[in-house]
Amino acid sequence: MTVRQPAGRPRPIGARLRAGVVGAACCCALIPAVAQDTPARKALRVCQDPNNMPFSNTKGEGIENRIAELFGKALGLPVTYYSFPQRLAFFRNTLRFKLPGQDYPCDIVMGVPVGLDEVSVTKPYYRSTYALVFPKGKGMDHVASAEDFLKLDPAKLKALRIGIYDRSPASQWLNRHGLLEQGVPYKLMSADPAQYPGEIVERDLAEGKLDAVVVWGPIAGFFAQRVKTPALVVVPLKSEKGIRLDYQMAMGVRYGEREWKQQVEGLIESKAPEIQAILKEYGVPLVDASFGAPNN
């Protein structure tokens, strides 16, 4: 595994794209770059965030690193990584970055939401949703759904401190159910390069600074299973009319690279059992279309 960092350009630092609304990516409206398919590849060159567990890091420990290595083995190619912090300019600085006379630094982003228009999106390989996470033994052990949670004694709900990332569907969900005042907002964009999305779970929730959190499912599941004391419960939430909580996740390549996209989709299909096993190993809450909502 080879990891490259951008050379000669400043690295913007921010919280990860998928920390808030997987769909924070959908806020950008940049013109897609069109590229042509190239001859035989010498490596599987992956665009990644260097500190965005459970998805990726420079040690190759994330879900997307594991899937990239799986694909590299299937293709008979070494895997290299071009690292850049995920934020609104991520695609422009990785997949679509090209200096005159030079090649692109990477050819695939291993995780993008279906519907993103900045890249050519493949068929999806999993669907997850935002999840409620809380510790056992705090009066919520019977909670197995959003409905159970919202039926808690009103005094109990009013006293809760619920961690959320600002400008995410979680804040919309709290507002819908009259719990916005109980929300404890965390910045989606942070100036701290060491900040990572899972801190809200394995630090503040585990240490009792929060009573519950609502975060993107893969973050919820992965970091909840890393916390041994107290034991944490993960409850996937269904989308509601006007509030989308579930997302299908796919991979992204450059527009114009039709054959490469087809090859990637072939790998998604042929390696589906291995991919699902990796997702389950990392505790990702996998849901089906029943978690969607009409007109979302």
Rank of each mutant, 00 (worst) to 15 (best):
Q5R: 14
A7F: 08
G14V: 00
R18N: 13
V22L: 11
V22R: 11
C27Y: 11
L30F: 12
L30H: 13
L30S: 14
P32I: 00
A35N: 03
Q36G: 12
A40F: 01
V46F: 02
N51F: 08
N51D: 10
N57I: 00
F71P: 02
G72Y: 03
A74G: 07
G76E: 03
G76K: 03
P78N: 03
Y81R: 14
P85D: 11
Q86H: 10
L88C: 14
F90Q: 00
F90H: 11
F90T: 05
R96S: 15
P100L: 10
G101N: 12
C106P: 03
M110R: 08
V112H: 04
K123M: 10
V143I: 13
D148C: 06
L150M: 05
A155T: 10
A155N: 07
A159D: 11
Y165L: 06
P169S: 08
L174D: 10
R176P: 09
L179G: 05
L180S: 12
E181D: 15
A191M: 09
A191E: 13
Q195F: 14
G198P: 08
E199R: 12
I200A: 06
R203K: 14
V215S: 03
W216L: 09
I219N: 06
A224Q: 04
V235N: 02
P236S: 04
I243T: 12
M251Y: 01
E257R: 15
Q262Y: 07
G266H: 05
I268R: 05
P273H: 05
E281C: 01
Y282F: 15
L286E: 05
V287G: 02
